[in-house]
Design a protein around this nucleic acid. Sequence first.
DNA 1: ATTATCTATAGATCTATAGATAATGC
DNA 2: ATTATCTATAGATCTATAGATAATGC
Lengths: 245, 245
Amino acid sequence: MAAAPKSRTRAEQRAASLKLILDTSEELFSQLGYFGVTIKDVADKMGIHAALIHYYYDGKKALFDAVFERRMEYAVATRTAGLDAYEAEAGSRVTVEGALRAYYDQAFDVYIKGDEGWRNFGRIFAQVNNAPGYGAEKMDFYFDPLVLRLIGLLKKALPDAEEEDLFWSFQFTSGAYTLALSRTGRIDRLSGGLCASDDFEAVRERFVTFMAGGFDALYKSRKNAKPAKAKKASAAPKRKKTKAG
Amino acid sequence: MAAAPKSRTRAEQRAASLKLILDTSEELFSQLGYFGVTIKDVADKMGIHAALIHYYYDGKKALFDAVFERRMEYAVATRTAGLDAYEAEAGSRVTVEGALRAYYDQAFDVYIKGDEGWRNFGRIFAQVNNAPGYGAEKMDFYFDPLVLRLIGLLKKALPDAEEEDLFWSFQFTSGAYTLALSRTGRIDRLSGGLCASDDFEAVRERFVTFMAGGFDALYKSRKNAKPAKAKKASAAPKRKKTKAG
DNA sequence: ATTATCTATAGATCTATAGATAATGC
DNA sequence: ATTATCTATAGATCTATAGATAATGC
């Protein structure tokens, strides 16, 4: 990759270098995380000199952000489109499963049909979503509006649900999604090869069914605990106080 | 902390230093991960010289392993006890919710009642469980036997369930658990302060209900899809081929 | 003339070890 | 005498920049 092949226009050359830098760092970051990768690792893997990466990106943080943001716009657009379509189609007849499907089935498509780069990005996404502090702002910035839209739909599907329950249920769903994107290989070993963590089709086939069942079960358990009467701030779970972190 | 306070026996002094080293690195690792922390960071935070850490631990990897393993024995014992008790109590009348409760309610207790160190450990556990490659062996070694026992119970509760579905359902559950341990603060911001990711009581109050609902829903969707007849390797999800990682 | 890439290097860390010093223990 | 802790330091990286070289573009 060192020697510039054939004759390319500068714009092409630049674009190719940028893409290769992003692809390579995406792969390395996905395996070892932000702190586990040095700019030199990326340059060495590409066969170029580290100084070139500094020429294009202003330091490691900027490189990581560029890797992350390259795919974010599309990821957000995908979910937005899913929600738009579902809202138009369902009108006021929203269901938990329908809303979750609108949000997540689109999401898995990218990892099924996309290239290896997307799957690498999935691991980075999982790192960021799972890390306290680091990168959290990005997650908030890009996804909060979408998630709040999804929660809005879920409220329509379960109008008398406790709001806390919806948020916690979403967090459970998000955690399951995150581990799926990590593809740690654990399920492969645990199941003796019956399941493969790279098998996103298997995940998509089951994910929303499982989560919708979870939302419903939590919802129903509340209704049963509280005889009719609907809403009421009852039984507020005692908040724990912790020395931050 | 530098100057040795009062007179302490050597054994005490050694134990105190070891504990402080482990506690301090646990806290730092929990925030920044393995690669985000240097031995010098730990030493500086403790107010000792980095050489002392090398005196006790043979390098950073050994330190990290020590941090991780310090709490593992107890974590495993806790779950083992939960499963033992449930098996004795339920006999052949095993339910999904019962089995999950035996496994997870114990697990959350430690994070509710334990000290800040346990909650820091939880974040490290989440990192390891969520990372492809790194530390995976440890997870397999310590937890696979327990998880397989849990899966065995779930098979009793749902005797004609597809095995893949049980493994995937467990993975979803494990992912939700992992994100809960990370306490990223995202749910706090998303919910406008209604929920707090430090609030493990709120998690425990909802977790098993949600997951049991998920297991059941996936199980039922299969039964409905296949009229009677029970098991059958039908509809094997096409395995995806990926260039490894 | 401008842009892409490389060479060389300064300055900052980091890990790990050897060896000195200061305590405790018998 | 033994153990805990510190000082000093070698050797290896890493980040980031200045400045040289080699291409493309008008």
